[in-house]
Amino acid sequence: MLKDLGSPSRSTSSRSTAPRSAFRSAGEAPLRSAGTSRDVRRRRTVLLLVVLACFTLIVLDARRSAGSPVEPLREAAAGVFGPLESTATSARQPVDNLRDRFAEMDRLKAENEKLKKDNEDLTRELTTSDYARNRAQELDKLLKVAPAYTMTPARVIGIGSAQTFSHTVTIDAGTADGVHTDMTVLNGTGLVGRVVRTTQGTATVLLIGDRNSTVGGRLNASMALGFVSGRGEVGGTLDYKLIDPKARPKVGDRIVTWGSSGNAPYVPGVPIGVVTSVTANEGSLGSTATVKPYVDPTRIDTVGVVTGPPARAPRPQLTGKGN
């Protein structure tokens, strides 16, 4: 690659200097030509150094498990750019900008309350339909230990572009607000994603539509378990595969999270999306469903991070009483 870049530059520079030196005085000509070849060498050295620096960075950062040395750099960048992004985000809404700080806080409080209420309504809505019909008894118990999660409201201040292929957003809450990695992020309509990276004042959220994301999803109608994985598409379309190959999802079935142990990274009972089409797997049993998420990934603004678990973890409680 370096050679490809270097070779035409030599030919062009020698070609372009030839007519130009004709315009210069005779005394300057040899000096200039010596200068250009030195220029070319210096230019290539700079390119080589920069490319080497890039490769060093990539190699250093590629081994995620060992703790990347780039982490401090990320922290520093988030420290500087988090407030900048925050400012830029609020500057795009001139109406919000006109209000003073207290009005903004009131608005956030109201929004938070609405968010909580919406979430409660949704949980109730979910539990009153198919869910309840199927397992009314368990649900009674579930309602008793209803997930009254503590939520931290946050605003989306940065969105990853499609050019990066990754579906991530930055929110303006960080470790200072009690947000840590592997926490569930949701909004009024459903599951948004999970926190993958935090700094003092910001957190990075991996959306469920990302190809790296897999969420355990339960079919509301049949309680069948499966996995929801992102397709990496802009609209956030998801794939849903059931664990039981004989179970078949139907169009219009709704999917909620079945939760992870210790409520990290996903708490149970959060709506994910609705099945829009089902195709049989080729060459194997089972079927894959296409799921349209409730949350439009391009329209996320205010989200809630589940920072506090319910008083008791609902799942162990259920099985304990059920047995």
């Binding site: 990539i58 780039v70 960048a77 750019f81």
Partner: peptide, 21 residues
Amino acid sequence: LLDVVPPADHTAGRWALSLAI
């Protein structure tokens, strides 16, 4: 900067290399 400023979550150095070239 694009590599490390949130919400970037990829291996650092990729945009650096791309934009440098």
